[in-house]
């Protein structure tokens, strides 16, 4: 691999795979089952889910590049601490910038921005990928994985907001006449357990489509 590296095009087949694999067959949430905690917490409504996805995209993209640039000088005995410092510093930066320039969004996300630090996907990608690959590949891997993460977040929050509040992006979608006919919002959808069930259904649908993911036993 390393010999062909110099000649490899920016978006060669291998590099494209780094971007697209996490969307489906190597999805961080539905296949690697990482980052479940935040997937439960912030998927009640669509808007925070999208902002959260973008924040993770920045942190994971930038963090992967930084770790990859330092991969040869990080003492292996303290590498986890180094990774933690990098992700924590990036998250605090995101938080500060949001508070200064996107005040309303930062209010919506409140504590969840801080929770990116504990997102297992971030540490997982640093450890598993960025420490052993070039910055460009690490960047693609970071973007791909956060896109895969964000995709599931958006799917889950779409269903939770639609059935839980009858709305999307805070706008009422389900018409008033439905409620008059006896339809009620499903309050369960707003609670974390339903997020797990929705994620479960997503995993089920994905495995029906992509049978290579089904473990033989």
């Amino acid at each position: 691999m390393s010999e062909v590296k110099e000649k490899e095009a920016l978006f060669s087949k291998n590099n494209r795979k780094l971007l697209t694999n996490p969307l489906d067959s190597d999805n961080p949430i539905t296949v690697q089952v990482l980052g479940i905690c935040s997937a439960l917490a912030i998927t009640v409504k669509l808007e925070p889910a999208i902002v959260m996805s973008l924040s993770v995209l920045f942190v994971l993209g930038a963090g992967n590049v930084i770790i990859s640039l330092m991969r040869n000088i990080i003492p292996s005995r303290i590498r986890i601490i180094v990774q933690l410092v990098v992700v924590a510093a990036l998250v605090i930066l995101v938080d500060q910038v949001l508070k200064a320039y996107l005040f309303d969004v930062s209010k919506q996300l409140s504590v969840f921005v801080g929770l990116i630090i504990t997102n297992c996907i971030v540490m997982g990608r640093f450890e598993a990928f960025a420490l052993g690959n070039t910055p460009w590949k690490s960047f693609l891997d970071g973007v791909g994985n956060s896109a895969g993460y964000g995709m599931i977040l958006i799917i889950v929050s779409f269903f939770r907001e639609l059935f839980g509040s009858g709305a999307l992006f805070g706008q009422q979608i389900i018409p008033e006449s439905f409620y008059e006919a006896g339809y009620v919002n499903n309050g369960m959808m707003l609670l974390p357990p339903m997020a797990l069930i929705v994620v479960g259904i997503v995993i089920w649908v994905q495995r029906v489509r992509n049978t290579s993911l089904v473990e033989a036993n």
Partner: peptide
Amino acid sequence: TNKNSYTFIF
């Protein structure tokens, strides 16, 4: 990179 002094300085 495995020396103690290096780890500390890093």
